[in-house]
Amino acid sequence: MVNSILKVQNLTHYYGNKVAVNDISLEIKSNGVLGLLGSNGAGKSTTINILCGVLSPTKGDVFINGINIRNNQIASKKLIGFLPQKAPLYFDLTVNEYLEYCAKIRLIPNVKIRNAVERVKQLCNISHFSKALIRSLSGGYQQRVGIAQAIIHDPKLVVFDEPTNGLDPVQVLEVRKLIQTISKDRAVLLSTHILSEVQATCSNIIMIEKGNKVFSGSIEDFNNYVAPNTLSIKMILPPELEEFLLICGVEEVDFKNEIILVKTNDIIKTSKAIIERSIKSNWGLIEIFPLKNSLDDVFAELSSSIN
């Protein structure tokens, strides 16, 4: 049997009496990006710190490529790359010095260090800053250096904790692209509280809230998690509000300029009825479609479900 790249079993962590992570299990079997979604303080960072060996869990087990990190920290840590929320940089060093040092403490043999450093610099597009002090780099490039150190030892799993935090829009796009490139050859766990980031980069999602797992599945599953219940309608000669309310299934109507939003309890029946009435009454229907739930709605929905 092939080992999962990451397997987390019943992970629980307490800070004193306060539970930060409660009985979370998850598994990564193949390369690609898994999004770890949750609002601020949901327990994302705690989970990630545990996976990366920065924190020991109160309960539960973490296996990296089949190795339990509790029993074999050194071996398991060789397989993980980690970019914490704040990139762990030494600002008085140059990019080269820093990456060489990272390579050393990741136990890369001396002869391979130079190649490893060159490879990640190219991958992260920072080769031209090799001799610059990290202090002098812009935030985006500092983040790239942070990413470079996370992959310098060619790990099976890379963990990014909110990697686009504090970057400008252009830098955000670049970093996302970089993460997707990286994920071609290895599994990536990306923690974020920004939905668009998940949409842009992730193939699968795990969402936690208040330490509990509230969702786990593909991005499509996530999008369809809550069934749609609103129709968006455009008409040349729309009727009065009262007439809509008489149509089968309609619960609420909202006129927004030219668009009429109709909330219903049965989307199929109500659409059919509206189309029929429109033809009969000559309302001049030009557009009707079910309004998909936005991620934000799902997010809010899932978040509130735990409350």
Partner: peptide, 14 residues
């Protein structure tokens, strides 16, 4: 303070 301790903690060193 800078969080770079996490680099050391997540590296395969004791």
């Amino acid at each position: 303070n800078t969080g770079s301790i996490k680099l050391l903690f997540s590296s395969p060193i004791s």
